[in-house]
Design a binder for these strands. Structure first.
Lengths: 231, 231
DNA sequence: TCAAAAGTGTTAACCATACACCCATGC
DNA sequence: GCATGGGTGTATGGTTAACACTTTTGA
């Protein structure tokens, strides 16, 4: 036990809430791992772990996420820091939570170090979670709902090429509402941040929808000119 | 040095960005302390300090704020956690930042433990700040600007009784813009979250303005019914 | 030919914007 | 009486919201 300090110190961890959208089930999913070790052994939890002394918080989150789930190269945003004194039975542990939005099909997940298993769970059918991870997840969903109307983050949950109806379903799922198809199309197309492509849906048992892409550069430029996304 | 651990641990601190509005100067101010000890001795910094092992992060922030500035009983909201490895010359220190909005006149400030001096500074005339505190402050201002249009937090920066023109000036200051007086009044009054009072401004060298109060309960109820504040 | 989703316009109500003058008060 | 800010209405254009049918495709 070589590390000694004049005053006691809490341990610091990071946890990651990785959310995905499943268009076929119109469902938001979260990536969970089954814990290999105590405490909460064999229970489902958010991927995460201890912060090393020479890495930034975000680096720690990315590292733990890759180590435990195989998911790499994604954009994490800091969510909130959870530090209630008794949130971890091992002692005082302060956890900095991050969240990410990814297209469900875009990454392959695999169980790795410290995880027995990795799985996507619908946020409507969750197992009991370790620690205060339900609280962290709830906080991520709240952030998503608050943000999705003012920032075009919904696109991160869809594949690069998507149909307008998928985008609409995504918004309907996140905001727990229904939207008028014609008005939705008018509004989003008028914003001029989508690129129409010549690709169409494949293998659907009905008329194939035209696919669109989010035009990030156009969006950035419009923002500079004072445009503000609002849905 | 009685505290030893198997793995090294970062130190954890809290820092508070307390913002106030000065209607007479139409200026946003931030509460800073002059540091009594190294590092950055005699430099201005955000109030803050180390988290005790048995207190929550918010409790720590409130405690440090009161100890160093005399400001108590205010509402703090967590802002962001700063954890770049070299942000503190003493070693790895992770800081959870909080921010608060208060009416400038409502609290008396006094220098206390760990602080040589306490003062309000206009955010347009800041001294050099210790650590990465300019970054933290910038982050608080960004949060304020992002939030003030969608959440009625502006009222926290004003006295309980305020004139509509003060509210307008506050918005103009925060958003760095100008607003049309008639349209502003129509919009805010139509929202129905202000209580008209029978009080008027005192001691002004022109017609005294009617004072209003923010009706928190009404606002909460409207929110439940689906209303969303937007300015 | 049927099922399933794609795609498309119009109208009415509401809201945002632009804009200028008189009023009340203290000095 | 003058300087300062308080307080008020209208007209125009744009945005939102409500609403239903035809088209395309694969099975």
């Amino acid at each position: 036990m070589p590390y000694t300090y004049e005053y006691p110190r809490p341990a610091v961890t990071v946890d990651c809430v990785v959310l995905g959208f499943d268009p076929s089930e119109r469902d938001l999913k979260v990536l969970l791992i089954k814990r290999l070790s105590e405490p909460y052994k064999n229970q489902w939890a958010l991927p995460g772990g201890f912060v090393d002394m020479d890495e930034s918080l975000e680096t720690a989150a990315l590292r733990e996420l890759e180590e435990e789930t195989g998911v790499a190269n994604i954009f994490l945003e800091q969510l909130y820091t959870f530090g209630t004194p008794n949130r971890d039975p091992r002692g005082r542990v302060i956890s900095v939570a991050y969240y990410a939005l990814i297209s469900l099909g875009s990454k392959t997940i695999r169980a790795a170090s410290d995880a027995k298993d990795v799985q996507w769970f619908s946020i409507n059918h969750l197992p009991a979670l370790a620690f205060d991870h339900s609280l962290i997840l709830a906080s991520a969903l709240q952030r998503l709902r608050g943000k999705v109307r003012y920032v075009p983050i919904g696109f991160e949950l869809l594949p690069d090429y998507f149909a307008l109806s998928q985008l609409q379903q995504l918004y309907e799922t996140i905001l727990e509402t229904t939207l008028d198809k014609r008005n939705f199309r008018k509004k989003i197309l008028r914003m001029d941040v989508l690129k129409e492509t010549d690709n169409y849906q494949q293998g659907v048992a009905h008329r194939a929808a035209r696919l669109y892409r989010f035009d990030e550069q156009k969006y950035e430029q419009l923002v500079k000119e004072g445009f503000s996304f609002e849905l």
